[in-house]
Simulated scan of single mutants.
Amino acid sequence: MKLKKVYDTEAEIPEEAAAFYEERDGKWHLTLEIEGSASQDDVTRLNGALAKERNDHRATREKLRAFGELDPERTRQVMDRIGDLGEWDEVERKLYRLDGDGSTPKDEAAIQARIDAEVQRRERAIKAPLERQITQLTEARAEIERERDEARGTLRGRTIADALREAAGKAKIIPSAVEDVLLAGERVFDLDEQGRVVTKDNVGVAPGLTPDAWLTDLQEKRPHWWPTSEGAGSRGNRGGGTLPNNPFTAEAWNVTEQGRIAAADFAKADRLAKAAGTTVGGPKPAPRNRAA
């Protein structure tokens, strides 16, 4: 059942929701509020955090793009051995002691040792700043990924909580039980690839259920979440105890939810269908008389 925030006349208000409206300025306004619902400021802050994460991640990726597909270790080895030609000329003169007569030392082993020592010195001088830069970039990337995961986790939790609160309102869960609904739903719900809030695999309930269908399943197990007149087994004004979100009723007819319930528990689907005046796979029943 969908409710409007404002009705022009009292007659337009659904009977079961009449208690939640009051007359102001000649019209009837909805007064029901759900504690803890997300504000626009909350959504704005979360969107801002995600935008910052995307921009920071893009900047880091651009910094690392210079490495391309090259092997970092091999690239460092090559870079370490590239020097200024003029500088190597000076090294060469020192190593070979080339002077005016062009004489050179005769100890080739000593020359090689001095060359190796000079190469190692140059390697350390070149590698040190590169290694520091790589360490800084690695740490920056890890921090960006951490902030991204935190922002996504916060947005995911808020989206699931809002969907559960909305479903609880539709199912007329009593206010004192809403927190219990959120705690129980946090364990079994997640966002699918399309961003829809559905039950997860391997959590003890049928996967792919919406919050509305999940609460319908729980009404028999958690009747204390509902007012006495609407708990499981109560008959009240619902013509034989039909659940308020029973997808087999004319008012809440939903073939997809019928199939999900039948796949998870056919016996339960059969009970719900009979309570609504039809059968599993049967035709849509006639609407029930509210006054019955």
Rank of each mutant, 00 (worst) to 15 (best):
V198A: 06
P244F: 04
V197W: 04
T249W: 04
A252L: 01
G239D: 10
W253Q: 07
A252C: 00
G236D: 14
A177H: 09
P211K: 07
G195C: 12
W226P: 09
T216F: 01
S229T: 13
F189T: 00
G240E: 01
P247Q: 10
W226A: 10
R238V: 00
V178K: 02
G240I: 00
Q219N: 07
G233K: 02
N202F: 09
H224D: 14
L243G: 08
E186G: 15
P211E: 03
G208E: 02
E230R: 15
L215Y: 01
W214D: 05
T199D: 08
L218H: 13
R235Y: 05
A250L: 00
L191P: 02
V188C: 06
Q194L: 09
P175G: 01
P207V: 11
I173S: 04
R238E: 04
G231S: 15
A232I: 02
W226L: 14
S176M: 05
P175S: 08
D192K: 11
E230I: 10
W225S: 01
S234M: 13
P211M: 02
P211Y: 00
E220K: 12
H224C: 07
N246V: 01
N245V: 05
V205F: 13
V178Y: 04
E186A: 15
R238G: 05
P227E: 14
G185N: 09
K221A: 12
L243D: 11
G240H: 02
T249F: 10
W226V: 04
K200I: 04
N202A: 14
L243R: 13
A252Q: 10
P227V: 10
V197G: 09
G204K: 04
A206L: 03
R222Q: 15
G185R: 09
R222H: 15
T216L: 11
S176Y: 07
K200H: 08
G241W: 04
D192R: 13
P247Y: 09
E179R: 10
